[in-house]
């Protein structure tokens, strides 16, 4: 890959008991691009981003972020360096307002500057299209809006690398289209690592694709290359005919 990498893993491995969820994953994330991580269920995608974000402790291997070895940093330190993470299973602050949810995400950087904070929250909510719901209690939002709120919380952190774990899961068709537009609009602004099952989203947004299978990197390349790859066809795409 020609692009400069912002995040890199070397020999990242995770064993649960005797079972290897990830083995020896070497991965580079191109700066400013959208990279999709795909693979069949149980391929170890979530374990992989868990180790990158610090939620899951790696059995062995290293993670480098902007040239720095972050393998031994706890999750919150990694976030402070400029990673952001959205959960596969929606994780918001259900008892707080939408506004406060996003403010919490932005406040860590903006701190006591309440004007800048307010401006940031408004900007993010407007961008994802839920500004009119700012005062609603987050737990009362529809499922689709909660997923959007979760993305808004990621954006509010101005991340250098934004990890999205199956963001479109359970969304309606029209919401998926909005999401595709949003990700495209972010291109160049930040680096995105997208875990996605929906091949339409992958093909329309990703600059690069990495395929994981049985905890190992099976293939890497542009969408066109991956589409043509026989191994991938066999392991993964074969099972989803519409891709």
């Amino acid at each position: 890959m020609a692009a400069v990498s912002i995040l890199e893993t070397r020999g990242l491995t995770k064993a649960y008991g005797g079972v290897l969820a990830n083995s020896d994953v070497n991965f580079k994330l191109a700066k400013g691009k959208v990279t999709a991580l795909i693979g069949p269920n149980g391929a170890g995608k979530s374990t992989f981003v868990g180790m990158v974000s610090g939620r899951t402790e790696a059995t062995s291997g290293q993670v480098f972020f902007e040239g720095q070895d972050i393998s031994h940093l706890p999750a919150h330190k990694r976030m402070q360096l400029g990673l952001a993470y959205t959960f596969q299973i929606t994780s918001i602050f259900p008892g707080l307002s939408v506004h406060e949810n996003v403010a919490l995400a932005a406040r860590r950087k903006l701190g006591k500057d309440s004007e800048a904070l307010e401006a940031k929250v408004q900007a993010v909510l407007t961008r994802v299209g839920i500004a009119d719901r700012a005062e609603q209690i987050a737990g009362d939002l529809s499922y689709g809006h909660q997923r959007i709120l979760e993305i808004a919380m990621g954006l509010a952190q101005d991340p250098h690398v934004f990890i999205l774990d199956e963001p479109t899961q359970g969304l309606a068709e029209s919401e998926v289209d909005d999401f595709i537009k949003l990700v495209r609009s972010l291109a160049g602004e930040t680096t995105i690592l997208l875990i996605e099952h929906n091949m339409k989203v992958v093909m329309e947004t990703a600059d690069f694709i990495t395929v994981l299978d049985q905890g190992m990197v099976l293939a890497e390349g542009t969408p066109a290359e991956i589409h043509a790859n026989a191994d991938v066809q066999a392991a993964y795409l074969g099972s989803t005919p519409h891709a």
Partner: peptide
């Protein structure tokens, strides 16, 4: 968990 993943200790 979410608070931690927003970068708070």
């Amino acid at each position: 968990e979410r608070t931690r993943m927003l970068g708070y200790d």
